[in-house]
C-alpha cells in the first residue's frame, strides 16, 4: 500500500468504507455529504499513507481522519450560516437560511425511527467532543479505549465526555417535551 499499489488501495477502500461512511453519516446527518466525505477521506489516505506510522490500527487512523474532516465541514458550514445571517441583517441577502432537514438514519429499526430522529437532532446540539464520543460509542460500537485512541484522550476523559453527553441530551429532550 505504501508503494501505492492500486490493488492494496482497493482492498483498503473495500474493507474500511463501511466504518468511514457510517461515521461520516452519523456526524454529518446527510447521506450525500457522507458519501462525499468518504471519498475525501480515502483521497487523503491515498496521498498520506506514507505518513501512517503503524503505531495505531488502520481503523483508528481512518476514524480519526473521518471525524476530523467531518467536524471541519460542519464548522465551515456553521461559519457560512453565521455570515449569511449577518448579511441578511444588513439586507444584503434576504433569502431564508437553509435548515438541516431532520435526519433519519437508515440503520434504525422502523419502530425507533421517530425516536432516533429526535435523538439525532439533540445530538447535533452537543459540543463537538461530546458528540463525537457519543456517536462513536452508540453508532460505531467502539469501546472507551478505542474512542480514547481515536480522540487522543485518556479513557477517563472519554467516560467524562459520555457522562456529560448523556446529561446534556437528557436536558435537551426534557426541553423538547416541555414545549
Amino acid at each position: 500500500m505504501k508503494a501505492g499499489e492500486s490493488s492494496a488501495f482497493k482492498y483498503l477502500v473495500d474493507t474500511y468504507k463501511g466504518i468511514v461512511y457510517n461515521t461520516a453519516l452519523s456526524i454529518l446527518q446527510n447521506d450525500e455529504d457522507a458519501e462525499d466525505m468518504a471519498q475525501e477521506v480515502f483521497i487523503q489516505v491515498f496521498h498520506s499513507v506514507k505518513d501512517f506510522k503503524g503505531e495505531s490500527k488502520i481503523s483508528t487512523w481512518l476514524y480519526r481522519i473521518t471525524v476530523t474532516k467531518s467536524l471541519d465541514l460542519l464548522r465551515s458550514r456553521k461559519r457560512k450560516k453565521r455570515f449569511a445571517f449577518v448579511k441578511s441583517l444588513f439586507g444584503e441577502n434576504n433569502e431564508p437560511l437553509a435548515e438541516q432537514a431532520s435526519f433519519v438514519h437508515p440503520g434504525v429499526q422502523l419502530e425507533n425511527k421517530e425516536r432516533a430522529r429526535i435523538l439525532f437532532s439533540a445530538i447535533d446540539k452537543l459540543p463537538e467532543n461530546q458528540k463525537t464520543a457519543f456517536l462513536l460509542n452508540k453508532t460505531e460500537g467502539l469501546s472507551y479505549q478505542e474512542i480514547a485512541e481515536v480522540l487522543h484522550v485518556s479513557v477517563s476523559s472519554v467516560e467524562s465526555l459520555l457522562f456529560r453527553a448523556k446529561g446534556n441530551l437528557q436536558k435537551y429532550l426534557e426541553g423538547y417535551y416541555k414545549k
Binding site: H105, R115, K138
Partner: peptide, 8 residues
Amino acid sequence: SLDSIQKA
C-alpha cells in the same frame, strides 16, 4: 433508540 442500530 440507537442501541440496536444497523450499519448503513
